[in-house]
Design a protein around this nucleic acid. Structure first.
Length: 856
RNA sequence: GCCGGUGUGGCGGAAUGGUAGACGCGACCGACUCAAAAUCGGUUGCUCGAGAGGGCGUGUGGGUUCGAGUCCCACCACCGGUACCA
């Protein structure tokens, strides 16, 4: 193969070096994880597996660099490391490409995988290639179907009719997590609500555990991600309160975080698209029915974007029915309004306009009464106000001074949500908000009309998709209306050939058009039956793939429990923050489900998480549509894999975004050439005695050896590169103007450089190692332990401060005692000059580094 | 609005409460060269000063401390998440 050496590589043919080592790695396959015979402790490193959308881009370059750095570092530190790779190869882009070009989704997908694979090989990533998997292979999705059926058995997979998110462009439903700002996360089209019957995974059953277990991850996952998940799960604590509805037998329950304000409830609101509203309207007068239907039609036409826009005026219709307040028997008019959501809480609220901004806005729009029940002017700390009692021992309501217009919600339009003391609330009067919440729950429980309750923002995970390129849902709809699993001996239920199928989005699954495929028989009766035409959300695939890597070719089970318990949870998981909720929440959920089923012994999938920032260009995201893509392949071709890796590793902290303009591949090339030249210049033999080498250089070498492991653990990769540069610079200096190239310390430094540089520039490191006279792979060589004797300095620089300003520095022995150091400082010329006769009133001496004098 | 995060040279960024700016990019000066590239050496926070040397400096204002980029309080700016969630 002909090639031209990269420029700026100091005469080294880095292209040839790269080719040479990639060929050797491919042949020797040195990065396979050890099997059961391997007694070293294990580490599982994983980068979020790629979707094969085309060639690799800079985001991949960063992501897989970081996981490779960690994997390589752990190998050097004596671990049996698993660093696998696979493809998240089901999904919409394949299908859309297929529609556009008339190719099969499968073909498009597997061509892309081949391309990405070449990309990874050219990048020198130390994967265990023997465990490669594709989620679009029946050998993989078989076990999605298995998982689905196990969950179905436990009522964790179920069907329900509910308003769902519908992407108007992709013509499919979406999970709540896939709607971003009212738009489809994938294509950006507006999302509307539709009422459909779909398959769900009951993630809400795990809400408490998903929330509480986040505490275990504190310090190991980015704080930001933990916080995002907490907010997403959104646990609210309060009470369920039962309201009787006039003319109806069953009570209606509402959830409220403010049961203390029950006396301030003046009306009642139902979600217009909920079941209860429909029921009440069915019994209403024709006029009410008509008004309601008109309103509902308007509401359902709205997109999520319209619905979410702030400052929207409140709208609603009065249903001419009344709810009865359980604490005082008051009749509360029932309205239907779209500010109440059908799928949160119970889809109904008691409205307390004085103390809830939304209720207040609604009350003011429709002229409904407003009653203040918390006096927010009353002190809640300090002396408890004296409550006067009337003749019967009932507290006299102190009332609120309603001459204070600034505090009258009806006038200001501002609900009083702050702290205060209860008024107009019977036996709760005088209590602080906090105490009143607790007391009101006690009262409701005593009366049997309410109870403490929790509600979550998290909704169940909608997993059906009306698209082709995904895992078929392994269920059968029988003629008599039962829904039964596909018998396990018929699994995997494979996708039919896409040829001849109409894949265009039309709102129903393309599989419905696969006549032969969709028709089957009822496994119980033998009667004709239909398969479920939908496929699963591809996030099901990625929610457990890290377990499949432990035995990707096992045709008998999803994964062997014994292997899973040995390797998993993943020790270091690397990926973008865009998955902070979606993928990471789902994987945590499925892990807990598998734990409950007894397949694994751990409850969290990823012990530590690294979120890399984005690679941007000129301050904005790179994208094909903007035409500002920096291509992975172009950079490898222009500067070499190692230069790209070093440049990215050095560009800044892992979690920060990196502007491509600040990523210096040419700087990295220069550094790599300097490192190679150092190795080339070494004239001593591997057998030299290092202890006889130059002490100053040895100290630099050993400080790096001592610090590197902790720096890697703290993901301060950019600092490790900086320290490598310092070592190479120090070695250069020793060769050129110090002890010379033959000094043993020079060899020791060059060898240490190769061993640590392997994390960032594996090709260069291997080449250095070979230049230094070794034959094996440096990537497999254990790091040397730093000599503690070389880490303690025998001299130190002491700083002398006077009134907080550094006035002198002294070279002193590292073992100097406080009295000697203080004497030296007090008699130093510069100190005397700076004192200018002022008297020292205080001296703080911290040998050997600091003397601090204070003066008058 | 609510929740979280971040503010350090021209730029990317270092810095267990102890000399702020490691390491690099860029820039400038020099060596080599017919010349350029590459390479090598030097300078490079701002400012006053010929120099010696001094003053000021980590978003702003306060505080704790012998000593604060680092700890505490208040504020400002930017970024991210989320939002009729009852």
């Amino acid at each position: 193969m002909s090639h031209t050496p990269f420029p700026e590589s100091g005469g080294f043919d880095t292209q040839a070096i790269q080719d040479k080592w990639q060929e050797r790695w491919e042949k020797a396959d040195p990065f396979r994880a050890g099997g059961s015979e391997d007694t070293r402790p294990r580490k599982y490193v994983l980068a979020m597996f790629p979707y094969p959308s085309g060639d690799l881009h800079m985001g991949h370059a960063e992501n897989y660099l970081y996981s490779d750095i960690v994997a390589r570092a752990w190998r050097h530190r004596g671990y049996n490391v698993l660093n696998p790779i696979g493809w998240d190869s089901f999904g919409l882009p394949a299908e859309n490409a297929a529609i556009k070009r008339g190719a099969e989704p499968r073909e498009w997908t597997y061509v892309n995988i081949e391309q990405q694979k070449q990309g990874f090989r050219s990048y020198g990533v130390s994967f265990d290639w023997s465990r490669e998997l594709h989620t679009s292979d029946p050998e993989y999705y078989h076990w999605n179907q298995w998982l689905f059926q196990r969950m179905h058995e436990r009522d964790l997979a179920y069907r329900k009719e509910s308003p769902v998110n519908w992407c108007t462009n992709d013509q499919t439903v979406l999970a709540n997590e896939q709607v971003v700002d009212g738009r489809c996360e994938r294509c950006g089209a507006e999302v509307i609500k539709k009422k459909l019957t779909q398959w769900y995974f009951k993630i809400t059953k795990y809400a408490d555990r998903l929330l509480d277990d986040l505490n275990q991850l504190e310090g190991f996952w980015p704080h930001k991600v933990l916080q995002m998940q907490r907010n997403w799960i959104g646990r609210s604590i309060g009470a369920d309160i039962d309201f009787r509805i006039e003319g109806r037998d069953e009570a209606v329950t509402v959830f409220s975080t403010r049961p203390d304000t029950l006396h301030g409830a003046t009306f009642f609101v139902l979600a217009p698209d909920g079941d209860l509203a429909a029921e009440l309207v069915a019994e209403a007068t024709p006029e009410v029915q008509e008004r309601f239907q008109t309103y509902l039609a308007g509401v359902s036409r709205q997109t999520e974007i319209e619905r979410q826009s702030t400052d929207r005026p409140k709208t609603g219709v009065f249903l001419e029915r009344y709810a009865i307040n359980p604490v005082n028997g008051e009749r509360l008019p029932i309205w239907a309004a779209d500010y109440v959501l059908a799928d949160y809480g119970h889809g109904a609220v008691m409205a307390v306009p004085a103390h809830d901004q939304r209720d207040l806005d609604f009350a003011r729009a429709f002229d409904l009464p407003i009653r203040v029940v918390v006096d927010t002017t009353a002190p809640i700390t300090g002396a408890i106000p004296v409550i006067e009692l009337d003749d019967e021992g009932v507290p006299i309501d102190p009332g609120m001074d309603d001459s204070i217009d600034e505090l009258n919600p009806a006038k200001t339009g501002l609900a009083l949500v702050g702290e205060g003391r209860m008024i107009n609330s019977g036996a709760l009067d005088g209590l602080s908000k906090r105490n009143a919440i607790a007391r009101s729950i006690e009262q409701l429980e005593a009366a049997g009309t309410g109870r403490a309750a929790k509600t979550y923002r998290l909704r169940d995970w909608l997993i059906s998709r009306q698209r082709f390129w995904g895992t078929p849902i392994p269920m059968i709809h029988t003629a008599d209306g039962r829904i039964v699993p596909v018998p396990h001996e018929q699994l995997p239920l494979q996708l039919p050939d896409a040829a001849g199928l109409d894949l265009t989005p039309k709102g129903t699954s393309p599989l419905g058009g696969a006549t032969e495929w969709i028709q089957t028989t009822d496994p119980d009766t033998g009667e004709p039956a239909l398969r479920d035409p939908d496929t699963m959300d591809t996030f099901v695939d990625s929610s457990w793939y890290f377990l499949r890597f432990l035995a990707p070719n096992d045709a008998t089970q999803a994964f062997p429990s014994a292997e899973a318990n040995k390797w998993a949870p993943v020790d270091s998981y690397v990926g973008g923050v865009e998955h902070a909720i979606l993928h990471l929440l789902y994987a945590r959920f499925i892990t807990k489900v598998l734990f409950d089923m007894g397949y694994i012994e751990f409850t969290e999938p990823f012990s530590s998480l690294i979120n890399q920032g984005m690679v941007i260009l000129g301050g904005s995201k790179m994208s094909k549509s903007k035409g500002n893509l920096v291509l992975f392949k172009d950079e490898i071709d222009a500067h070499g894999a190692d230069a790209l890796r070093v440049a990215l590793g050095f560009a800044g902290p892992v979690e920060d975004d990196k502007d491509w303009n600040d990523v210096s591949t040419t700087g990295a090339q220069k550094f790599l050439a300097r490192a190679l030249r150092v190795a080339q210049d070494v004239t001593s033999e591997p057998s030299v005695v290092w202890a006889e080498g130059d002490q100053a250089l040895r100290r630099v070498t050993h400080r790096l050896l001592a610090d590197a492991p902790a720096l890697i653990d703290q993901t301060k990769f950019n600092v490790v590169v900086a320290r490598l540069m310092e070592l190479v610079n120090a070695t250069r200096k020793t060769i050129d103007s110090g002890a010379g190239a033959a000094d043993p310390a020079v060899r020791e430094a060059a060898e240490a450089t190769a061993m640590v540089l392997d994390l960032f520039a594996p090709h260069t490191a291997e080449e250095m190692w070979e230049m230094l006279g070794y034959t094996g792979f440096v990537g497999l060589v254990p790091w040397r332990v730093a000599d503690p004797m070389l880490l303690v300095e025998d001299t130190a620089k002491a700083i002398i401060q006077i009134d907080g300003k550094v006035r002198a520095t002294l070279d002193v022995s590292a073992k100097i005692d406080a009295a000697t150091l203080e004497d030296l400082a007090r008699t130093d010329d510069r100190v005397l000059k700076a004192l200018a006769g002022r008297e020292i009133t205080r001296a703080v001496v911290r040998p050997p580094k600091v003397v601090s004098f204070s003066t008058k």
